[in-house]
Amino acid sequence: MVSQPYRIYVERTDATKNMARFFAMEISSTLFGETCLTRTWGRIGRRGHSKAHHFDHEADAVELFLELTRQKRQRGYCPRQRA
């Protein structure tokens, strides 16, 4: 079981470059008791691509979650702007 929810959704938009991207991550438990980090990314308004990483320990999943979050923030991704 995952001890606390880990979920993030960030976007990166730049009208001058016709860029509208999203990146989402979530840590959850599988039916077999493994910890799973699922990443989804793509163009805003599209389904996007997904990749799942399976871990024996939640701490390993959290470590990857935080590292990927840091990388995305450095590249200019930020939480969705409210309308």
Score class of each variant (00 low, 15 high):
54 H>E: 07
10 V>F: 10
3 S>D: 13
2 V>F: 06
5 P>V: 05
17 K>S: 07
60 D>P: 02
53 H>Q: 02
5 P>K: 12
53 H>E: 04
56 D>M: 11
37 L>E: 09
55 F>Q: 10
82 R>D: 09
8 I>Q: 07
43 R>L: 12
53 H>G: 02
65 F>S: 01
3 S>C: 07
47 R>H: 12
12 R>H: 10
40 T>K: 14
15 A>E: 15
56 D>K: 14
46 R>K: 14
29 S>D: 07
26 E>V: 15
57 H>Q: 13
6 Y>N: 06
83 A>C: 02
33 G>I: 00
69 T>D: 10
54 H>W: 11
22 F>Y: 09
12 R>S: 08
59 A>N: 12
82 R>Q: 12
62 V>E: 13
47 R>S: 13
35 T>Q: 12
25 M>P: 02
48 G>V: 02
57 H>C: 10
69 T>E: 11
51 K>Y: 08
16 T>H: 04
58 E>P: 05
38 T>F: 04
69 T>A: 06
37 L>I: 06
39 R>V: 10
47 R>M: 10
45 G>W: 11
47 R>I: 11
10 V>Y: 07
52 A>I: 04
11 E>V: 15
77 Y>H: 00
52 A>W: 04
60 D>C: 03
15 A>I: 02
8 I>S: 12
75 R>N: 04
79 P>G: 08
14 D>Q: 05
81 Q>D: 08
45 G>M: 12
78 C>K: 14
73 R>T: 09
65 F>L: 01
32 F>S: 12
70 R>P: 00
44 I>D: 05
72 K>T: 03
58 E>D: 09
68 L>N: 04
81 Q>G: 05
21 R>G: 03
41 W>G: 01
24 A>D: 03
7 R>D: 08
53 H>S: 12
42 G>W: 04
44 I>F: 11
26 E>C: 12
69 T>V: 08
79 P>A: 05
18 N>V: 04
38 T>E: 13
64 L>M: 13
